[in-house]
Design a protein around this nucleic acid. Structure first.
Lengths: 340, 340
DNA sequence: TCACCAATCCGAAACGTTTCGGGAAATCTT
DNA sequence: AAGATTTCCCGAAACGTTTCGGATTGGTGA
């Protein structure tokens, strides 16, 4: 592989000047910049990232640590994240290290080790828990990171999040306005912040409508069709107090709900109204639902670009900008929700 | 972060000796080795990988490049691969870099660039094409790599592969022995070596049985339930020459076949026999099929360990062993296949 | 007593890059 | 025409590790 020294010999310039030319510094003439970049292309020069990192501290590599069990919990979402983030980072000339921890070993320890290994510029975190330990560690170590979601209301780090409170509120408010009172929210695991916020929005909608909130129920499950089906089973086996409307945390759960209700001979929306949040997962497109599904929409795919940007700007001195984005999804009313 | 120099000061030893102690060299006393490792643990020392790579050429990082469109084609398989490989490499103290190329840019160029970036020890390649260009590049560059599958009969590189010819042969032979003559193989994309080999095994079974091979059909599709369903539609719409038996390339395709036949009111195995190859994908467990599915089985999960080993041994001088493994799956006859 | 050997240790150089502190020549000010 | 400024350039040091070639012991056999 060609090195700076090779280039400098070939061009009869100092190594210094070649380096500065390639990094587009001010005090090198336009002419030499052209010559240098041309020669670099011809000789197939690529900067040695190890050497760069060693000297300057920048490698352009960011990492994400995911637990294998977490992968199993929400495979589609994580897959979308891995692909989306990796692609967006590649576009920005950065590289993406995915580190899967096997069952049993601690993600926080893994972060600590990776920090010490001296080749990673920053981290990406998805699906934070309340008061997330990984975030705590990275903050205390002063290592840059960006988060999909957030573990507090006013975080001091860059993130991209959906307004999950508003999302829960809108879906619930819609159903309440149609006259529903016994509504069940079937959403992701209770240890996920997004589910907690959505549940809060759900409660808030009851409060604003002046309806006794005890009539609402929240079920926390893994976000798969299978679990959605089981949740419906739980809700409808238990005698008289059946819900008249269901809210699904994503379209996979909604799929499960649709099949479970069909199995029971209950029709949508005549017997039960169903609404959902749509992440835009390619595997379960919302157009495929019959009857068409009333839903809030905010594609996961929209998140990866901003998150990559947030981390990239965070990494570039001297400003170390802290970019924070919250998007509020719109509600689209379709055929799956009707008056009670 | 603590460095070797910090340790050497703290222990009143030379940097050299600390390094040699940590790397378990022969000419350092057992006593100092103990002292050094203890101090390293206490001070939280982690070797700086950039520096190590720069000097010694070893970083412990291996990369895999996947194209985004390929991800879309076989999401479950690729996800399983990413998780499995990452986990297995982590176990061996190595790290796994996943690089997703966005639509349009060339995977081969990406490999070349990564080779030049000076931080990757070797590559993993999955799902090779016949005469794979990535393999050609890495070979010519002398960069170590290991392959899941193989692009030739007797490759000169480390790999782990299923005997896809035998697999296609066994499934077809089974159906032929039950009296079936019009058999359709619905398998992965025509540009994948595994599908080509299976098709060859399919043809070979016809030849050995002395049956006119023109009665068999091979369909190449993306390996999803959706595409499996569509394939059945193609096969059964076209008038009189319907197949009496179907072979599915994996359990996702088999799922599609089951639903498509059910929709048409065709029963398994009375009207149509169905057999499949089972990759052990967690999403579509073979136990869930009704009637139970006759299949060859070889879990993808069994591949990642051997592949990680193959690459790891390949990377360790001086021997640079070339480990090559082929497994032959067994056929389990169940309820989905019967006499014609 | 002396050379010799094994067992431990160490200094210094090197990997390829960035960056600090200057320096020479050309151009501009007065 | 002398100083000030701009423009372009360079040498050398440093990042943290590994490794080469030797150096220092204490002990052994002649």
């Amino acid at each position: 592989m060609a090195t700076l020294k090779d280039l400098s010999k070939h061009l009869d310039l100092s190594v210094t000047q070649v380096s500065r030319a390639l990094n587009d510094h001010a005090d090198v003439s336009e002419d030499t910049k052209k010559r240098v970049t041309k020669a670099a292309r011809e000789l197939g020069y690529t900067a040695n990232i190890s050497a760069r990192k060693l000297k300057s501290g920048r490698s352009g590599i960011v990492a994400m640590v995911v637990a294998a069990e977490e992968e199993r919990e929400m495979p589609d979402v994580l897959l979308a994240g891995v692909i989306g983030l990796s692609a967006e980072l590649s576009k920005r000339g950065m590289q993406f290290v995915l580190h899967v921890t096997t069952d049993g070993d601690d993600p926080v320890a893994t972060h600590r080790k990776l920090c010490g290994s001296g080749l990673i510029d920053g981290f990406l975190i998805v699906n934070p828990a309340p008061n997330d330990a990984r975030i705590g560690l990275l903050r205390s170590l002063g290592v840059p990171f960006a988060v999909h979601g957030r573990d507090a209301d006013q975080p001091d780090y860059p993130y991209f999040d959906v307004d999950n409170h508003a999302l829960g509120f809108k879906l619930t408010e819609h159903l309440l306005s149609l006259g529903h009172r016994r509504i069940a929210l079937i959403d992701g695991p209770a240890h996920a912040v997004f589910a907690i916020r959505r549940a809060a929005g759900f409660q808030a909608a009851y409060a604003v409508a002046g309806v006794e909130p005890a009539q609402g129920r929240v079920l926390n499950v893994e976000m798969t069709a299978q679990k959605g089906e089981e949740a419906v089973a739980t809700l409808f086996e238990v005698g008289g107090d059946r819900p008249t409307a269901l809210i699904a945390g994503n379209t996979m759960i909604a799929t499960g709900i649709y099949t479970a209700l069909a199995k029971r001979g209950l029709s949508i929306p005549d017997d039960v109204s169903v609404v959902a949040h749509d992440d835009g997962l390619p595997r379960v497109p919302i157009q495929d639902f019959r009857p068409s599904l009333t839903a809030t929409t905010s594609p996961l795919a929209d998140a990866w670009g901003p998150i990559a940007d947030a981390l990239a700007t965070r990494l570039t001195p001297p400003d170390r900008e802290c970019r924070q984005v919250i998007v509020t999804p719109e509600l689209s009313v379709r055929a799956s929700s009707a008056t009670c």
